[in-house]
Amino acid sequence: MKLKLFSTTESNGQKPKKSKLREWVDAAVFALVVSTVVRGLIFSAFAIPSGSMEGSLLTGDHLFVSKLNYGARMPITPISIPFLEAKIFDGSVSTYWDGIKLPYYRLPGFSSIKRQDVVVFNYPPEIDRPVDMRSHYIKRCQALPGDVLKIVDGQVFVNGKAAPNAPKAQTSYMVNTDGREINPQLIHDLKIELLGQIADNQFVMIIPPDGLAAFKACTNVVSVKPIIEPKGQYDETVYPHDPRFKWNNDNFGPLMIPKQGHTIPLNDSTLTLYGSAINNYEHQTITRNGDHTLINGQKADHYTFKQNYFWMMGDNRHNSADSRSWGFVPEDHIVGKAMLTWLSIDSTETTLKKIRWNRMLRPIH
């Protein structure tokens, strides 16, 4: 028996009208695809959760981050739930599956990373996760591949020249008073952060530069002095976490930032400085056999880096976990350039004052 084939087109040549439910489903799928492409290739929105970049960026700032400037990074872990963090429910549940991993590839960008750019990147120490599933951090780029960085009494030097300080960069101060209480409303209004109290009349505070003069003018404030960790004082929390390098947050280096194609000799010093990067980010296994160094089981007296690295630091220098804590940021961890503050919410204010209107649509420098 011959079967008659029915066309999906009505006799008048028009397609059947979609149901309302089908229209909603199609619209939702289209919106999901477009938003995923935009978020993956063009820009993403991020919120500032901590004070490490204050006062350049404030806790509660919501940012647009361009992925076009440095070139969009293609997904390394392609199977994940979009628009969710890699870990949810206090880190107990993963929103991705790492059974499939793709090689690192980045589309051409408008420019390369420049010193003083404010950059979003994946947090390098989370080596138990795929690169693109690591937490997002935001810092200012202080040094590029091949640069030599040094910090002297809190001032960053790159290739022997003092690096510009962010106009609203913050640091900590030792404050001595005459014993009278400092007005809490003044502390709030000047956005001062109290880090600790040493004695009845001695405090450690982070004071924004805009309010420093007004704070010093208070009649009960005797002295305000910047806190600088002295040269040669070893801080075990500072990279490379080895007493042979007596470095701290304010006096650090000199340190060469690895560059793709740059070759270093392998000895005790270079292995201390660069061994973790070679192991964790270049995925080469380094071992020692007596006086010899082995890379992937083969004797080696030098190593050539396979990718570029960067040095990132927060503008709030004494309240920032950054490259001084964990070292270099590999190129494949770079997400994008912070471009614009589109919304800013101050959780410490009352309902009517929560939105910082003066920071709306503000370019990031």
Rank of each mutant, 00 (worst) to 15 (best):
E10G: 11
N12F: 05
L32Y: 09
S35K: 02
T36I: 12
V38I: 15
P49A: 10
G55W: 13
L57K: 03
N69Y: 12
N69S: 13
A72M: 12
A72E: 01
T77G: 09
S80M: 01
A86V: 09
K87D: 06
D90T: 07
Y104S: 05
L107G: 01
S111V: 03
F121A: 13
D128Y: 12
D128E: 13
R129K: 14
H136L: 07
G146R: 12
D147W: 12
Q155P: 02
F157L: 14
F157K: 07
N165F: 05
P167E: 14
S172Y: 05
H188E: 11
E193C: 00
G196S: 10
F203L: 13
M205L: 14
I206G: 05
V221T: 02
V224E: 00
V224C: 10
Y234E: 10
D250F: 07
M256N: 02
I257D: 00
L266A: 08
D268L: 11
I278G: 10
H283Y: 09
D301G: 04
D301Y: 01
Q307G: 10
W311A: 04
G314F: 11
R317P: 02
H318A: 09
S323G: 02
D332G: 00
A338G: 05
L340Q: 04
L340W: 14
T350S: 11
